[in-house]
């Protein structure tokens, strides 16, 4: 097997999935409705077996859910972003593909209120169960504090 550089891997993925947008910084923008299939294929066909990071960012109009995939056998890393509607933030859960998502998705749900459909135990993890808001949303206001 010849060793591929990360840009070769990326262009191969783009060739297979033309619906993926590649940004200038080399980030993948994946539409949310195809996320689960593409992610599974990235693991099975492209060997991205290690899900390092799952998080999300609130842009007030939409959420970006960010996934970082890497390989335990090679230094490649993919930065995958999927835009989610802010009113109905639903993303397919990655737990069935990478078990490591289990707590990270709970954290993203807890702090940003993104619903990961198919997650086996989507409950708050850091905050108390009686909390109602999601503090990492940009429109969250808290009383007190320094500023």
């Amino acid at each position: 097997m010849t060793v591929q550089t990360i840009s070769e891997v990326k262009s191969e993925i783009i060739a297979k999935y033309p619906q993926i947008e590649l940004s200038e910084a080399g980030h993948f923008f994946v539409p949310v409705n195809q996320l689960a299939d593409i992610m599974l294929d990235l693991k099975v066909s492209f060997g991205f077996d290690f899900l390092t990071n799952v998080t999300a960012v609130d842009y007030l109009e939409h959420f970006n859910v960010v996934y970082n995939l890497s390989k335990t056998t090679a230094p490649d890393m993919l930065h995958i972003i999927t835009k989610v509607d802010r009113k109905e933030p639903q993303v397919p859960s990655m737990v069935s593909i990478w078990g490591g998502a289990i707590w990270q998705e709970r954290e993203a749900y807890d702090l940003l209120g993104i619903i990961f459909t198919g997650h086996p135990n989507l409950k708050r993890i850091l905050l108390d169960d009686s909390w109602e808001e999601h503090p990492l949303r940009r429109d969250f206001q808290w009383e007190g504090g320094r500023d």
Binding site: T52, N53, T55, V57, V66, N68, G99, G100, I102, W103, Q104, E107
Partner: peptide, 12 residues
């Protein structure tokens, strides 16, 4: 966002 190793390890 911090990817904290202990947090993710504890998931198992």
């Amino acid at each position: 966002h911090f990817r904290r190793p202990s947090f993710i390890n504890l998931g198992h």
